[in-house]
Design a binder for these strands. Sequence first.
DNA 1: TATTGTTATACTCTATAACTATA
DNA 2: TATAGTTATAGAGTATAACAATA
Lengths: 174, 174
Amino acid sequence: MSMSIPSACAPVATDMELRAHADHHDSLRLWLRLLSCTTRIEDTIRQRLREQFGLTLPRFDLMAQLEREPQGLTMSALSRRMLVTGGNVTAIVAQLESEQLVQRQTDAEDRRVFKVRLTPAGRRAFAVMAREHEAWIVDLLSPLSERQQDQLYRLLGTLKGGLATPHPQPQETP
Amino acid sequence: MSMSIPSACAPVATDMELRAHADHHDSLRLWLRLLSCTTRIEDTIRQRLREQFGLTLPRFDLMAQLEREPQGLTMSALSRRMLVTGGNVTAIVAQLESEQLVQRQTDAEDRRVFKVRLTPAGRRAFAVMAREHEAWIVDLLSPLSERQQDQLYRLLGTLKGGLATPHPQPQETP
DNA sequence: TATTGTTATACTCTATAACTATA
DNA sequence: TATAGTTATAGAGTATAACAATA
């Protein structure tokens, strides 16, 4: 592969996909397009989340995990689910706690452990954000018809089924 | 939207898509699957690039940009193409220069400006990496048949066509 | 004055590793 | 000895803003 010389026109702003050229394998073109679409959407979401709610994506993700577990999650469970190491979870939880969006709850049986839960305010705030978030997604995917979205969903399912599971090693027992 | 209570089983390692639940709009499920597939592939690439070549993705991308422009690119052109601000390009170029992969070439006409180019060693190194990179992609996308890949490519084209162009403002004239 | 590029600074996310406290 | 969580540190990428040199 040699990414060769492109046509002379220099685009004002490039994106991932403009790395594709005639001598590229079709899979590479497909990958660059996949990356390009996803990145554009993700950047949009990230930016809106920050502008409208002052929240980063990892923090939103952590809240989403908690929203699914009303009884709360331990730090190590969060670490596993978010696929990041423990120190990072400590930092994110500390941040959210300082904003009263989550709270720690000690465990009577094992005093090393505690559960992290959404506070009522956190739950309310998340509900608002999640509703907005979903509306953004619906809008961003609207170039595709329902039928096309369904097709895309199935194709990605096939792709995903063949991919290796992501590195779940952080904070796991060795 | 309320992300409701999931089934009791706690998965060992979750991924983005496990944020999807019954009451989610289909578009949201599609988005989470799209994000999940892309992230898995990207993380794999990033990790291999680092392990096998000691290179980060942004540096690889910068080299890819230069590979396409044998006459070199100015710092501001690189900044526009990579959609990051100037200071970052300075840092990445400095890194690559210290490894003799790229070089700066002063411009006789405008002494504020210079072109950044791949060195011969940089070009050779990039050729090797790009070949490997493409092989990884071909392999990672292999769960899909050629026909499916083609279908996916077209669907993403439709999606992409409807998305806004990414924020090309960094370092542009205001 | 405007433009090119650099420097300084700050922030977030990330990992590693040493540490404390419980078990 | 092993586990849960914290802290300290380091490194990458990002943005902003002030700056120098040149146009």
